[in-house]
């Protein structure tokens, strides 16, 4: 009996998504006294088995498919499903990436497993008999809890689970599985792959948004916000007032008449917090308000508030993030 994780690598490295899913799998498997198996594509992760062990895997299964392209699930779905069929894990976990979300339902279908996507939490019930899966429905207004079936496939929402704090093991057992291609040519083919650079993060899709308002006072300080956003892997936007003042292009306007954003983290710098603006960020997970005026309306909507002049505060914040990253 085992928990199986399909680890998708990011630019050939064991990235955040894989670390999180393996970390989550480890804690479930420990409670159930099971092993964690980690499936990777050869070429994609064949050389990273040690890291996968440290991230929580007992065994790594390297699947070799001659025609596989990691960003085209169609090219290795059959091999992956076959591998899973041979093992019949209790739980199969994917990260909620485009690839993971494509593979999961089809692997489930081929194994006649249950499928629950976009899980925010996975926990073993107190009696140790059930795995409980929580996922948002109706745009997150309601959460649903499912009991995992005997055979269950899930995808996990990025940033919902924690990577392990300490390396698990450096020398997992490694098995190689060679898939024999069947029947004719592959029906799909990747023509070109384009990765976005960090500075090119789209405002609507950014996980972190740093925005400035009327209180910024001019175009120059936006460089400071750019730097902060860059460090957080996010994008910069502004209120209508900042756009009207010509400090930012109109494409960066956030609010009902601009872009509607729902990042995990929204940092409002020197933004008063008009309803026009706040309605455009209402679905952000955490809103941080930075304003010199403790009475500023932004603090009615913000989850975390900092009463400081941003000119002093933001440079210090940038410095602290940099030093935290350095160590």
């Amino acid at each position: 009996m085992a928990v199986l994780v399909f680890a998708e690598l990011e630019n050939g490295k064991v990235g955040r998504n894989a670390l999180e899913v393996l970390g989550g799998a480890r804690s479930v498997a420990d409670k159930l006294k099971m092993e964690v198996l980690c499936c990777v594509l050869d070429g994609d992760g064949g050389q990273r088995t040690g890291e996968l062990g440290q991230a929580g895997a007992d065994r790594v299964i390297v699947v070799k498919v001659a025609t596989a392209n990691p960003s085209d699930p169609e090219s290795y779905l059959a091999a992956l499903a076959e591998t899973c069929t041979g093992i019949r894990p209790v739980l199969i976990m994917f990260a909620g990436t485009p690839v993971g979300r494509q593979l999961a339902p089809r692997v489930a279908h081929r194994l006649s497993y249950g499928i629950v996507t976009d899980c925010l939490s996975i926990r073993v019930a107190d009696d140790g008999r059930e795995i409980l899966l929580t996922r948002p429905i109706y745009g997150g207004k309601v959460h649903a809890v499912f009991a995992a079936r005997e055979g269950q496939v899930i995808t996990v929402r990025p940033r919902a689970l924690r990577p392990l704090e300490h390396p698990y093991r450096a020398d997992p057992q490694v098995d190689y599985v060679e898939a024999t291609p069947r029947g004719g040519q592959p029906r799909t083919r990747v023509v070109e792959v384009h990765k976005e650079t960090e500075s090119g993060v789209k405002l609507e899709e950014a996980k972190v948004v740093v925005a400035g308002g009327r209180g910024i006072g001019g175009p120059e300080p936006f460089a400071m916000l750019e730097e902060l956003a860059g460090l957080l892997g996010g994008a910069v936007g502004g209120s209508r007032a900042a756009v009207d003042a010509g400090w930012l292009p109109a494409t960066r306007q956030i609010g009902l008449t601009g872009k509607i954003v729902s990042p995990d983290l929204y940092v409002a710098v020197a933004i008063s917090g008009s309803s026009q603006h706040m309605a455009g960020v209402a679905n952000s997970r955490v809103i941080v308000g930075i304003n010199i005026d403790p009475e500023a309306p932004i603090f009615h909507s913000a989850h975390l508030g900092v009463v400081e002049d941003y000119r002093e505060f933001v440079p210090v914040l940038i410095e602290k993030i940099k030093s935290a990253k350095a160590c």
Binding site: L256, I260, S275, Q276, M278, A279, A282
Partner: peptide
């Protein structure tokens, strides 16, 4: 498109401001 969140909020919250 620009009116979609307004009308939705009227249904959901009874005001156009997502309050």
């Amino acid at each position: 498109q620009h009116l979609d969140p307004i009308i939705s909020s009227l249904y959901a919250n009874g005001n156009p401001w997502s309050g």
